[in-house]
């Protein structure tokens, strides 16, 4: 019984799917385009809502992959997908009895929101940049001993037709709250303002974290979307929004503006969707067979999904889908 299962993408969903399959006796192959396993989690510092180090989640997964001897092909990109085979960038074709697409999402390119001046003004950064700076231990141009004012803008590249992102990326709300708390702890004299349209605390412990940010850490929440950011003569950032709870425009100058960049559909989704039975939704994520009962299945019998390839998800949900997809695969290949 030598069944071949290919897993496209070695992030948390792909790793968990491979682990679950290997535990059931299948030897899956992970095809990962970058040079290491772990996907975006490699770039995160601590995870909401518990402030667990990203490595505490990633390392056990990596250890399991090694322990179970899962075949991993790094720096390999799938260029062509067929129901029972994939073709890689180097031209090799690999056949499989089942394929699980775990290719994840792309971080929204904040430069598309020109009015925020990302990559133009030094003191406009993204939430992804901030994670990297947390890993490095300090945030650019902020001084621990002097007060600073920081704005965190939610929904950059989410719920925004102007940049073809009609969906809610879900996790940025709580990520923005988490980063606000981390900033406050690193820079206790700073004043932090989160600009939001809705605060969507969908996960266990998220709402509690939000309340803690407000009351314990004195983070200010302003309901309104920043309409533009501009650099002042002393390289600070002037922002404008409406305080919609008051009904008046509001402006302030901040030392740092953090853009909570959303999840965009994976770049490879378009090429996957050239295969019959694989369809994209309006924001470019892949639509599963049925969002209630078949959320890890496609309309192609041998192709399955796990993780953010189908919609924005948090880490726990992505890992759960890895397990679910493994189960569906096992049933399909009549393990």
């Amino acid at each position: 019984m030598n069944k071949e299962v290919i897993i496209i993408g070695g992030g948390v969903a792909g790793m968990q799917c491979a682990i679950s399959l290997a535990e059931m006796g299948v030897k899956p192959t992970i095809i990962e385009k970058s040079d290491k396993l772990g996907g975006k989690l490699n770039d995160w510092y601590k995870l909401f809502p518990t402030f667990t180090s990203a490595s505490e989640v990633l390392n056990p997964l990596k250890d399991m992959i090694n322990e179970l001897g899962v075949d991993v092909k790094l720096s390999s990109e799938v260029t062509k997908l067929e129901p029972k085979s994939v073709t890689l960038a180097d031209g090799t074709t690999m056949s499989a009895d089942a394929i699980v697409i775990c290719s994840g999402f792309e971080v929204f390119d904040a430069r598309l929101k020109e009015e925020y001046g990302y990559k133009i003004y030094d003191n406009v950064i993204t939430s992804v940049d901030l994670e990297r700076m947390f890993c490095e231990g300090s945030v650019q141009n902020l001084d621990k001993n002097s007060p600073s004012r920081i704005a965190i803008l939610h929904c950059v590249g989410s719920r925004d037709e102007k940049v073809c992102q009609t969906h809610c990326s879900r996790v940025c709300c709580v990520a923005g709250v988490k980063q606000a708390i981390e900033l406050k702890e690193l820079y206790p004299k700073s004043e932090i303002f989160n600009f939001y349209m809705d605060i969507r605390m969908f996960g266990c412990g998220y709402e509690e974290l939000y309340k803690e940010a407000q009351i314990k850490h004195n983070i200010h929440f302003v309901r309104g979307r920043i309409s533009e950011a501009a650099q002042t003569i002393d390289s600070k950032i002037q922002i404008k929004s409406e305080d919609t709870l008051i009904g008046r425009p509001l402006k302030m100058t901040v030392d740092l503006l953090v853009l909570m960049v959303g999840m965009s559909a994976g770049k490879s989704n378009n090429s996957f969707a050239t295969t019959d039975g694989i369809n994209l939704n309006t924001s470019g994520f892949i639509s599963p067979k049925n969002i209630f009962t078949e959320c890890v299945s496609s309309d192609v019998d041998s192709i399955f999904y796990a993780g953010t390839v189908t919609a924005p998800k948090n880490i726990g949900e992505s890992i759960t889908e890895g397990v679910a997809a493994a189960h569906k695969v096992a049933k399909f290949i009549k393990l």
């Binding site: 425009p249 509001l250 402006k251 302030m252």
Partner: peptide
């Protein structure tokens, strides 16, 4: 201009009130 100018507004009273009753920040409108 009718905007709320957070660069010019005097936040002293505001800060004092939030220090005394931090739970006020927890309003979810």
């Amino acid at each position: 201009a009718r905007d709320i100018d957070m660069d010019r507004n005097d936040m002293t009273i505001s800060k004092l009130i939030l220090e005394k009753i931090p739970s006020l920040q927890g309003c979810i409108a």
